[in-house]
Amino acid sequence: MKILLVAEYRDGNLLEGYRELLGFSSKINAETVMFLAGSADSLPDFGGTLYLADAAIYGEFNPAIHKGLLTEVVAKEQPDIVAFSHSSYGWDLAPRLACALKVPQISEVVDFKDSLPVVPVCNAKMRRTVKPTGSRYVLTLQAGAFPALEESGSTPEVVQIDGDYKTDITFSGYEEAEKGGVDLSKAEVIVSAGRGIGKPENVEIVSKLADKLGGEYGASRPVVDAEWVEHNRQVGTTGQTVSPKLYVACGISGAIQHLAGMKKSEFVVAINTDKDAPIGEVADVLVVADLQQFVPALVEKL
């Protein structure tokens, strides 16, 4: 079994996600090669062959060109699997490559069962095992699903890769995340509001509880998208990553993007009317209750 891993590079830096890709290839015991559109100044901790496309020429984000370069690596190496992170770079590029190679793509793999990938269904409420047709396929790995390979201090054998491919978009740079406001990463207690709070007026119930516990209040994405809470309080993949001593999730179902931002919390309390909500998987205590009744009762007693 041979696997081609696709590492990522952004704003002049190699991203750490490749360590989880390496963890995956080591778990399935595959012969491993890697591709990176990046720079020789920022190489991954990996002892095998690295196909390096110079980002100064081919861009940091340029799916049509990166796809073309990857097809050349695939032609040379003939891997059984091409693995990406299920990230903004990976979920964009993976289907383009799958389409060019005319092979299946399996998205957001969380496990491997009898040599077949397992993926989530319906907000992680269920899972399914997927069998691709043919002998080669592309997959993306859910962040955090496979432990990162430990540091080895290795240096790859670099093979420069070039090709003449045309782009059909113009990438003109990055817009930084909104700064200022609240640094949730330093809070010892965070009480977060999810869609289950029902209406914007209920943000106050949540912020009161945060006050009583001497912490800050946060929110999950739907609450921020609805503009009930400002973006700088969002916890999750596209917001802040937090690790407080106590995390109280109020009406948060537990989408993976949210869990990724808070699962390192020391103690997690979830308040939810749905006993089966995925947040239950990371909660130390799940209080099955209507938060409009329960949270005020709790605040009263604190």
Partner: peptide, 28 residues
Amino acid sequence: AAQETTEMFFPEKKGGGLVLEGDPAELA
């Protein structure tokens, strides 16, 4: 189809988590 679903299942509950139900004041 390029792929088929061979099995669908509910993820195992990791366990350990305590589930509390009942009267809000007592729960608090």
